[in-house]
Nucleic acid binder design. Structure first.
Length: 486
DNA sequence: TAGGATTGCAA
DNA sequence: TATTGCAATCCTA
């Protein structure tokens, strides 16, 4: 039981889909009371806050206290069905996140700079090659100018529209690249440019004098119970390209001879689907320690040899089903015909019939009760489930299908973080939990603590679901600091 | 200078 | 016509 309360989280646990639960908005909504704005107190920022009259500053500060207390009293008197969730997950997590944020993340500034120089050189070369082909210089980062060059000057075929013009996004350029090399060059240019501006320059800019980044986690913004990360966003560091891996290796241990350890939940959402839907075939596949995507591929392609391409399709189907993907969506995602996509999705449901049954039951339940709930009993009202508009209703159905899985998985890792931080504390370890990336935790590990940390992190994460028919699975990856391996 | 539009990175 | 985020750049108002 947490020793404190948080009115923001108290509101979020009941209304996670409402954006902007700031104190002044809640005050206006619940008490029809408009709070003093920072701008009015500082006279539109002409004054520093420290120069504001003491009595004004006192009013401004006390208002926060009074309104917070009023909110607390109001929330306390309501029958909050999620009170256990709040006490066991959301509130205790606050202290854990505080520790994670204050421990910071160490970055190798020289390594970042080295990658930056490499990317800048690549960009110069690519730019030259592009301008050679277009016979004209233009700003490659401007979609509008790319559009003018490709479709007006060079008259390439165009097919996908945006609101205002024809799209020049990566998938369009990729189609064009079969016949026009310039398209591939623009893809590469944008790719390198993105990596440079978002992940090299931006992170370099906000490193402190000791080369640490101080990210912030927000526990009350997402509609799916996940955390988000800002300044910088450390949850979208690239991973699917060799340059991307260079960037990942710029994150290092703060300890001499230290290492970083990453602990990943393996296919957590498909495992949860098996558990929640109680599907015999899906559960059996995990019990046999089968590669789940390979197993699904065997169902989708009976009497065939399963190669990488069949497995890839099966993997897309496995993940797509969790979002109740349409045949259209699947066909777009992996570039197959809609007819094939339809066949695969139907084959999935006949292979795992309890999943289909569970989906149908969930929607029926939701239509009657207007809400769905997670494994831990967190409820989510789906207000549009009985909407007459088919598009809105379908979106609501997808939400009803996805929420119990996605949100359960978010709660699982939150519970794991709480237990792990308590473990680190009680064992007096010097290692630190430094990152959370939705289904992955990263630790900065003090020398000699590798074994005890890796073993216990795995044990804790895998045993969050106590009575499930299958256990969760966690993969541990350890890597040394770039400094040591170079 | 603020904010919309477009684009792209992650799970 | 799969979800959730954060952030960059360009460009208009």
């Amino acid at each position: 039981m947490a020793k404190f309360y948080d009115t923001l989280l108290g509101e979020y646990v009941q209304n996670p889909w409402i954006r902007g639960l700031s104190l002044d908005k809640l005050s206006l909504r619940d008490f029809h009371y408009e709070m003093m704005s920072y701008d009015s107190v500082t006279q539109k920022k002409k004054l520093n806050f420290k120069d504001v009259e003491l009595s004004t500053a006192a009013d401004y500060s006390c208002e926060d206290v009074v309104i917070t207390n009023k909110l607390f009293q109001a929330q306390k008197s309501k029958k909050v069905t999620e009170i256990d969730i709040l006490n066991n997950i959301d509130l205790p997590l606050i202290e854990i996140l505080k520790t994670v944020e204050l421990d910071w993340v160490k970055v190798n500034r020289d390594k970042l700079k080295e990658i930056g120089t490499l990317l800048e050189n690549e960009l110069v070369i690519l730019k030259k090659e592009i301008f050679n082909l277009t016979e004209e210089e233009f700003n490659i980062n401007s979609p509008k100018q790319v559009w003018e060059i490709l479709f007006e000057k060079l008259a390439l075929p165009k097919w996908k529209k945006t609101k205002t013009w024809y799209s020049v996004s990566a998938d369009v350029l990729w189609e064009l690249s079969h016949d026009y090399p310039v398209a591939q060059l623009i893809i590469d240019y944008r790719h390198y440019s993105k990596l440079l501006s978002t992940y090299i320059d931006w992170i370099s800019d906000i490193l402190d004098s000791n080369d640490f980044v101080h990210t912030s986690y927000n526990a009350a913004v997402t509609a799916t119970g996940r955390l988000s990360s800002t300044s910088p966003n450390l949850q979208n560091i690239p991973s699917s390209h060799w340059v991307a891996w260079e960037i990942r290796w710029a994150f290092i241990s703060r300890f001499e001879w230290g290492t970083l350890i990453a602990a990943d939940y393996s296919q957590v959402e498909v495992r949860l689907l098996a558990i929640i839907a109680n599907d015999e075939n899906l559960l059996q596949a995990f019990k046999d320690w089968k590669d789940i995507h390979h197993k699904t591929a065997e169902f989708l392609f009976p009497n065939q040899v399963i190669t990488n391409s069949e497995r890839k399709i099966a993997k897309a189907v496995n993940f797509g089903v969790i979002y109740w993907i349409s045949a259209f969506g699947l066909s777009k995602m992996i570039n197959i015909s809609m007819k094939d996509a339809k066949v695969y999705i139907e084959a999935f449901y006949s292979s795992y019939p309890a999943v289909k049954e569970y989906f149908d039951n969930t929607i029926t339940w939701c239509e009657t009760n207007w809400y769905v709930e997670t494994y831990f009993g967190r409820k989510r009202i789906i207000a549009w489930i009985n909407d007459k508009n088919a598009i809105i209703k379908n979106a609501a159905k997808r939400e009803a299908i996805n929420m119990p899985i996605q949100w359960t998985s978010a709660d699982i890792i939150k519970l794991a973080m709480i237990e792990i931080q308590n473990f680190i504390h009680s064992e007096n370890l010097q290692s630190k939990m430094i990152l959370q990336v939705h289904d992955e935790l990263v630790f900065d590990v003090y020398p000699w603590e590798n074994k005890i940390l890796a073993e216990n992190v795995k044990k804790i994460m895998e045993s969050i679901l106590k009575n499930a028919e299958i256990t969760l699975k966690v993969d541990i990856v350890e890597w040394e600091s770039w400094k040591d391996t170079k």
